[in-house]
């Protein structure tokens, strides 16, 4: 069994959602994660709120938030257990972030701490 990170990307982090909308998204996200956890395949998860975020550039310039030059922003990530990348992809397909046009979920295998991978 491998572990995969499912990284949720939003096309436009500048969009502002209403509290009701955010609550509905939260519910959908919890239903998605709950479905994975019900299969005993959930490892961990981290939400990444946009407020209080900064971007540090190569010349140590600090800008507010992951906005502006960077088009896509990461909304959060979860780590799941899966036998193959295909199984991880099946989990990713259920992610509610994908309801938004242009949003993506990136599936990445997590390197094992065995000095080889």
């Amino acid at each position: 069994m491998e572990e995969y990170a499912l990284i949720m990307r939003h096309e436009d982090g500048k969009k502002v959602a209403s509290p009701e909308q955010i609550q509905e998204w939260m519910k959908q996200t919890m239903d998605w994660i709950g479905g994975i956890a019900a299969q005993d395949k959930f490892v961990s998860g981290t939400g990444l709120p946009f407020d209080d975020s900064r971007v540090v550039h190569h010349n140590k310039l600090v800008t507010n938030g992951p906005f502006g030059d960077i088009k896509e922003t990461i909304g959060g990530l979860i780590v799941v257990k899966a036998k193959s990348v295909d199984e991880a992809v099946e989990f990713a397909k259920g992610c509610p972030v994908l309801h938004g046009d242009g949003n993506t979920v990136e599936v990445r295998r997590i390197a094992k701490d065995d000095g080889i991978h």
Partner: peptide
Amino acid sequence: DSILQLYNKLLIISYSPVAALNRT
């Protein structure tokens, strides 16, 4: 709605087959 959300959270911190079935 509330029961489903509670089961989602329960499974995230502690999986058990009973909880998985009840969530469904």
